[in-house]
Design a protein around this nucleic acid. Sequence first.
DNA 1: AAAGTCGTCAACCGCCGTGGA
DNA 2: TTCCACGGCGGTTGACGACTT
Length: 220
Amino acid sequence: MGGIAWTEEEDYLLKKCIEQYGEGKWHRVPQLAGLNRCRKSCRLRWLNYLRPNIKRGSFTPQEVDLILNLHNILGNRWSIIAGRLPGRTANDIKNYWNCHLSKKVCDQGVEKPNSTKEGAIFGKPPKWKPLQEESSKSKGKEYVDDQNGEISQGILVQNQSQNLPFVVEQNNSMSLGNMAMDFQFDQQAVVKAMEDEDGYNKRELWDDWVSEMDLWIDSL
DNA sequence: AAAGTCGTCAACCGCCGTGGA
DNA sequence: TTCCACGGCGGTTGACGACTT
């Protein structure tokens, strides 16, 4: 393994600590649990191994199919892919991809998708540059994307939990990274929400968007 | 049976974005 | 505005078992 393996006792201590104090505050976990591990190790161990409802064992053909489709769309965004596969961790999916699927994809003559290149439909999120000075308030901001020498302007909305920006562009289309969406999003609602000083709720917007995304993925 | 090679996967590393001081 | 601590992510490593020669 890439490091020092966790003992049963360490697992027990970590589990007990999380049960008592809850998830989060990882910097305090080693101390609270009495573990000689760093916060990152504790978090990783919990997320990838100890967390309840983690599905073990081999991937079903349906799961493999979904991974292939999602990877084709999203590239190496394992956490997002894992989010669409209940019980599977990003690390498991990443390992499975590296061991089984990446070779398979290459053997079939399909260019290996790569989140850092153009392989995935989404590609790498563009480097968004603010059109205006960013305010400290995290609301819809105007951005310009000039990574391909083509300027497109829009309003960036970024999801914190999934780290995926999407843009409501001035020509009333919507994009996520390099991908042009083939379904209509309720842009007016987005814009209205962004204009709404107090009623703004990114999470709801994002959930709506994810639902649309699910439908779109199912139709692939 | 021994040595070498390969596949798997848990764990670590380094980077990035965010939020608070 | 800057700095820093933190959480989170993807890439990589390396131990170990399985398989092959």
